[in-house]
Design a protein around this nucleic acid. Sequence first.
DNA 1: GGTAACGTGACG
DNA 2: CGTCACGTTACC
Length: 289
Amino acid sequence: MSGSGGLMEGNQAREDEDARDSCCGEEDSSPVVERRNRSGIISAPLNKSLKHSRALSQYIATCSAAAAVANANANRLAQSSLVSTGVKAHSTAAQHRAQVGLTKLDRGALLSGLLDSPSGLHLAQAAELLRQASMLLPVSDSTGLNMSGDMEGVSASDSLGSVTDFPLLSNGGGVGGGFPFHPGLFIMTPAGVFLADGALSQVTGATEHQQTHSEITSAISANGKKKRKRCGLCPPCRRRINCEQCSSCRNRKTGHQICKFRKCEELKKKPAGGLEVMLPTGAPFRWFQ
DNA sequence: GGTAACGTGACG
DNA sequence: CGTCACGTTACC
């Protein structure tokens, strides 16, 4: 279908970037044999730097520095890759599609994170707390915050500093200027407060409605202690390459575990006592301390 | 039905 | 604590 095609196209551009600077320290990247599954996850041997075993946190830290440098080239590379692969479309249009693909993903993750809050809140509480949370967000600095540097192979334009990526947080251009939803858009259940269907299309736009809807419904049905989902925002989540060397990769058949370098930071933590949602910065927000 | 991946318990 | 194995869920 055309919808998925567009999305794939967007992801493809990103994956190409990811594959290029796949991870830190890949100095003269030797020709890596790319094997991709249908989700676009690349199975690639661990590079040399990774073979010197480092703690994951260390790995991510060093990756951030390298990624910061690499980010400067990311956009250029994305464009050149599009040209070299024979994409006839206007480069800006192609870039836009690529961004849309990512944005969809991020919005879905965001909404999923927001709605996954396992415990209930009164509407007024939820509204007020969400409003406060949005005011805490440092969204004004789009050049740089920590996040863009941590995104492996994610171009600066893809970073999450842009308010436009998060309509929940932008109220007509004002940062933290108010809670953007009509109260009638909420559904209150014993399990918590959720956005109504119409609210989703209001927030995400009609074209994204279908995609997010399935996520929301699953999130709602999973109000209890079902599987948590990857946040989709943290560097490991954004990584699209299986190292094929860690224990999880080696034992994939029996272990059923995601590559250690792709394991979501949030899923590594113990499930919080309940009152925690994911902020767009990737950081968890606790309703109550 | 196949695959990916989360949750959990056992083990060293 | 890290690893492994299994059950289970979610998605295609």
